[in-house]
Design a protein around this nucleic acid. Structure first.
Lengths: 193, 193
DNA sequence: TTTTCTATTGATAATGATTATCAATAATAA
DNA sequence: TTATTATTGATAATCATTATCAATAGAAAA
């Protein structure tokens, strides 16, 4: 019993020590295990069970990759990342899974006007809260924007109430994006003149 | 001189009389002439001249069609409408012209998440003012929404100012869309249960 | 008016993201 | 363990949009 506990501690210590070692070697974060509570199933299992969806290898890996990719990856970028951990993955499976996750509300499907969709994990530990996007119309750079939530919430509530009444719509979601020219592009264009 | 003036009046009267006649026969609005001031060039000519663009037949027809199509037509729908007035038009020209018009700010390019763009005339007589869109996530129906502009303007000014300062973006535009389920689809889904 | 220059056009091929198809596989319930 | 069927991977198909290119036609200059 006591030995068990000590063994556990030693293994846990070794795990973190090795992770730190790898981090020093590769100079980046290394995730060795799928993200899960230390003594329980990953957080997304209930969502799958709930809709009668099966929990499969490809889905686990796609969710893991999504939770580790910063920014707003495209389907293709996700596919390439998944391929490293799970080489037999097919592109169609990535599209299907992203579609499923979007329907479950676990990811947001984003459109920055590039002619392809981008994705962002919406639920789970470590995800950003509600936010909007600020997009540079020159270089397509995207900045997440999450300020002014008080006024925003008030404003949106008012508008959504009004819309519900006037058009008999049951509002489920909204999209707000700002477009502009980022500092870098402005500077570059200034120099060109 | 005086005769000239009277002739003008008679012709003008005949034009409207005939238009009303056609309207009764076909039960819809009939546009017989390109939309232009009665004694001047169409309103969009200055925009073209200004950027060194040539004023061509296809462009005139596309603008005319845009000013007469209600709602939010897709490139393909515009192409088919233009084809009736100008059968030799090519699809590529429609795309090129819409792209040009969007860059000039004469049309808005819209995205309702259907995998193809839709367009809306932004300038010129008879166009709707600034408004947003309310989209049914079931049947894709789109309602134009233009209320609450006071609060909205105040809110947006505040946000855009904050964004300019914080991220050094020069804000040029914004996009606000609301998603929901329209009355019809809600009723239909209620019945299915 | 005529000439000259070159932006624009139409036809069509190419692109590229996403979706459909289908036999093989594997997750789950019994 | 077995039966059921959702899911998968490979690949073909789809479909909106873009690129290519020789021919055409605005419009500035002569």
């Amino acid at each position: 019993m006591v030995f068990d506990y000590q063994l556990h501690l030693i293994l846990l210590f070794s795990y973190f020590a090795f992770k730190i070692y790898l981090r020093i070697i590769f100079k980046k974060e290394v995730k060795m295990m799928p993200r899960r509570g230390p003594f329980g199933p990953p957080w997304w299992h209930p969502w799958f069970k709930n809709c009668g969806c099966r929990i499969t290898g490809p889905r686990e890996v796609i969710l893991q990759v999504l939770s580790e990719m910063p920014g707003h990856p495209s389907a293709d970028e996700i596919y390439l990342s998944v391929k490293k951990l799970y080489p037999q993955i097919g592109l169609a499976t990535v599209y299907r899974t992203l579609d499923l996750l979007a329907n479950l509300g676990l990811v947001h499907k984003l459109d920055f006007g590039e002619g392809r969709a981008r994705y962002e994990l919406a639920k789970g530990p470590g995800t950003k809260g509600h936010h909007h996007h600020l997009i540079c119309i020159r270089c397509q750079k995207v900045v997440d924007y999450a300020d002014f939530t008080d006024e925003e919430r008030e404003f949106l509530e008012k508008v959504e109430k009004s819309l519900s009444e006037k058009y008999n719509f049951q509002i489920t979601d909204h999209l707000i994006q700002f477009y502009g020219i980022c500092e870098e592009c402005r500077r570059r264009e200034g120099e060109e003149k």
